[in-house]
Design a protein around this nucleic acid. Structure first.
Lengths: 194, 194
DNA sequence: TGTACATCAGTGAACGCGCGTTCACTGATGTAC
DNA sequence: TGTACATCAGTGAACGCGCGTTCACTGATGTAC
């Protein structure tokens, strides 16, 4: 079968997009190449025309996840009429994000996984994190650019830990209560206006 | 072979202790029954005399990890001459804890894993978390017991996320800088005296 | 005191299964002549 | 215009491997008589 010129690129992008969702849902070991390709109505053999290993796909999928979530949060910030941190915190620490890891923040779902991966994967994570910090620093409290960037990282690290812990909980109301008090805390701690 | 009366109990405890370390190091899927038993110079078949499944062991191992870390942190608090939160934050957010997940906090290494487990495992996590909150609440800022407990949970959730993110980083100095600014932030936010 | 038997923590072969990866192959299209 | 050939995304069988779990078995000791 011969495919149109842009076909390969599109397939590759579809694999990354699906992998990004599935890894966030099930962890790096929770979904295999065969399952991933099947979800796209392809067979596992073709995978290696696009990626040299599962590890490489994992790194790209983490990157895609960062871009995905970052775009959503930036959109929330843009519609906030100057209360960007409040909007970002509300968009991050809510029941829907908690209930849908597959479409959510990769720090919350994959950071512990990434920590166990080879340096190459951790570098991809680090790059994505730096981009996060750069984008969100302007909305954060802090007297210098460096301080605002450190605060942006602290904000996301803290929110991610809170979201993950809420997800690890069994009781629905405990979960909601954790998210609620965290929203209040992170807004108070990181919003520019105080 | 016939063993002394307390032998079985001791073997069981050794399995849980080893599993607790190995799961924290490698994640729930990162170590198997055979590997675990081999580390204790036993064979995999005997495992099922002690546990009905790997899931059951995982739940008990998470519990053991909580007790382990909680005891260390309470010890740090006890030696702090009234600056308990400062001592706990220093004991949690340091390079050594970052470098040794196997002996470290299970929220940081296993919460994302637990979030994907059946309700039974999440209940075990929740119970352990409540015990954490109860123990550390007295050291936290807050006007009511409820507020102090909510703060204790926010403190550990935030610190765990920060530690996990630091571990997922590739650059040693970025890691150190994240930990340092986080220590300052969490002390300032949660210590009683301010 | 001596003998027959029950106990049961631990052994190691075997089960079915899914994993990541490789590879010979397919076949519709583009290209060379 | 017609024919022979190259391309290469995708197919599906096969690889070796490790997984969680089961099970018939072992054998030193405790117990019954």
């Amino acid at each position: 079968v011969r495919y149109p010129a842009e076909h390969k690129e599109e397939t590759r992008a579809r694999i990354v997009r699906t992998a990004s969702r599935e890894f966030r849902r099930s962890g790096g070991a929770g979904i295999g190449i065969a399952g991933l390709m099947k979800e796209l109505s392809l067979t596992h053999g073709g995978f290696y025309r696009h990626f040299k290993s599962k590890d490489q796909l994992f790194a790209e999928a983490v990157d895609e996840a960062f871009e995905d979530v970052s775009a959503k949060l930036m959109r929330a910030a843009a519609h906030s009429r100057g209360r960007e941190i409040e909007a970002v915190v509300d968009a991050y620490l809510n029941d829907s994000h908690c209930a849908h890891p597959a479409e959510g923040c990769p720090i919350a779902s994959l950071a512990a996984d990434v920590a166990r991966q080879p340096r190459k994967v951790r570098l991809a994570m680090e790059g994505a994190l730096e981009r996060y910090a750069e984008r969100f620093a302007p909305f954060c409290a802090g007297r210098t650019e460096g301080e605002r960037r450190r605060n942006a990282i602290l904000l996301f690290a803290g929110m991610a830990g809170t979201l993950t812990l809420a997800r690890a909980t069994a009781d629905e109301s405990l979960r909601a209560s954790i998210l609620e008090s965290a929203r209040e805390f992170y807004k108070r701690s990181f919003a520019r206006s105080g």
